[in-house]
Amino acid sequence: MGILFSFAVVIAIVLIVFAGVRGAGLNYLFAIIIPYLALLTFIIGVTYRVFNWGRSAVPFRVPTTGGQQFTLPWIKSNKLDNPHTSYGVIGRMILEVLLFRSLFRNTKAELHDGPRLVYGSEKLLWLAAIAFHYSFLVILLRHLRFFTVPVPTPIQFLEFVDSFFQVGAPLVYITNFVIVIALLFLLYRRLGMPQIKYISLPSDYFPLFLILAIVLSGIYMRYFDKVDIVGVKQITMGLVSFRPTIPDGIGIIFYIHLTLVCTLFAYFPFSKLVHMAGVFLSPTRNLANNNRMQRHVNPWDYPIKVRSYDDYENEFREKMKKAGIPVEKE
């Protein structure tokens, strides 16, 4: 149900672009207005989300510790999985954000006869996640050549590396293949694995279909229905220089690709995709396990009623005296 719904929404977007550009001639809307609005929504939306999380207090220092604590000098502590200094925390966050350290730990439990619970290593999800995210990043960076004149050397170098195995033109990028395979695997997990399917929401399928549609439309545009690259660059350069122009004769597939990308940008702040920013604010990862060394202050702490020792002794004084336990008031 959620699968069809999400798929239908992506198809609908494609059809709307088709009708809007081919039918109504709304090129200006799709190539200029929507991109600006989408980018604005993305920037304001994500900033708002981060700001809003940042407003929430961190009353307690509650890192999840994943290794030996800092302790006696002759016991080696695990400085990255159980950091007790800011450097350790930075290291832990780098591993988490760049290498998906926690996901790398993943295991798969199986119940065998006996009964015997067995835990196997399960790195496929990690591999697919790394492949997807890094391909996405490389593809995004490669696209900077549409927004720069001249194209900076690092971007050219990235293109060179990404197309390393290819001779001839147009260059075939490794990341194009990798991201499709990774997306198909992530989609397979949601559709084919009963547990994952059970927890999946429409908002889990939608980004997968959307990004897949973006990738496929991009590949189609590049290798099959070759659009007028010079015209496209006129549009993109017009957008970044705030002097938007639309040359004639650019294929519909470009408008579809662009609008799907805009959908992703605009959808981003309202969806689970904000995990990209949220992971930096996760208190179980970005705090040091040093609460016995440095005091952490709860900003909303308030006075509460407690039971004082006097109350305690008043209730038990006779019993304490009889048992020979010292008391404050005889």
């Binding site: 509650v62 994952i196 904000v274 208190p283």
Partner: peptide, 24 residues
């Protein structure tokens, strides 16, 4: 509590339902 606990606030928003926790 969304204002009092950043854990709660962030954890309500960023789960992608990858399922890594399911069999843990």
């Amino acid at each position: 509590r969304l204002m009092k606990y950043r854990t709660f606030h962030v954890f309500m928003d960023i789960c992608v339902r990858c399922g890594a926790c399911a069999d843990k």
